[in-house]
Amino acid sequence: MDSVSLHKIFDIGGVFEAIIEWLTLNLDAFFDFITQGINGLLNGFYHALVFPHPFIMMVLFAVLAWWIAKKGVGIFTLAGFFLIYAMNLWDATMETLALVITSVVIALVISIPIGIWASKSDAAEQIIRAILDFMQTLPAFVYLIPAVLFFQLGPVPGVVATLIFSMPPSVRLTSLGIRQVPKEIKEASRSFGATNWQMLIKAELPVAMPTIMAGVNQTIMLALSMVVIAGMIGAGGLGNEVLKGITQLKIDLGFESGIAIVILAIFLDRVTQALGANRKA
């Protein structure tokens, strides 16, 4: 064995590095533009969330949960967000929520049209599936690094990494949902003279909506889990608090921010799931 020296035959990593370097050097303006856009969106959401008094927001969240999901979810929301407030994690939680909302909005704007495209073309589906597999399985830290190179430290690379990580379920389930629309419903639309666009808007998307909403729910949950990791590159929010807890061995802070994340996760999950289930009826 020792006569065989272990060296790389292909230097894929090197090529990747070169590409990243070239991109950072030459597409600086482009990345700046994206950074500004994301920052604007993020700040907008954040300020909207922290502008009212926490108590007002708490009640608002609870009413929303009650209205969309059930009474129990509403009560849990009220109690949970009060606990977050009491732990003095309100601002960090809202920061995280703003990150999640920003990432998810951008992710859906990209992923749903791609999902529709994948549902219409088998070739597109094949290629897109491979890319999605890549996005989902590549360890998150691997694309955190280039994200930082492109967008500098701070929340923006966090958002970018999050949306890459959280997009695949929406693409997959949008495609699946539309492909699963019963053949006779599609035929019925065609036979009554629907254009492709009418068929998509009036028949396919509404019928596929429960499945699409399941994808949206998954995207939100993945975004939440990624936002915490993004805390490591200075994305802020609860991820930052968790990181502080780990690096400074502050067990209490780590545990408290963990609880805040769980509360946020349950709230987002129940509400978006109910949103999907309501459409089914």
Partner: peptide, 17 residues
């Protein structure tokens, strides 16, 4: 398709929503 011929399907093909 819109004005001359309409079709009725075996499994109805109604829009559930």
């Amino acid at each position: 398709r819109r004005y001359t011929m309409s079709m009725v399907f075996q499994h109805f093909g109604l829009l559930p929503h």
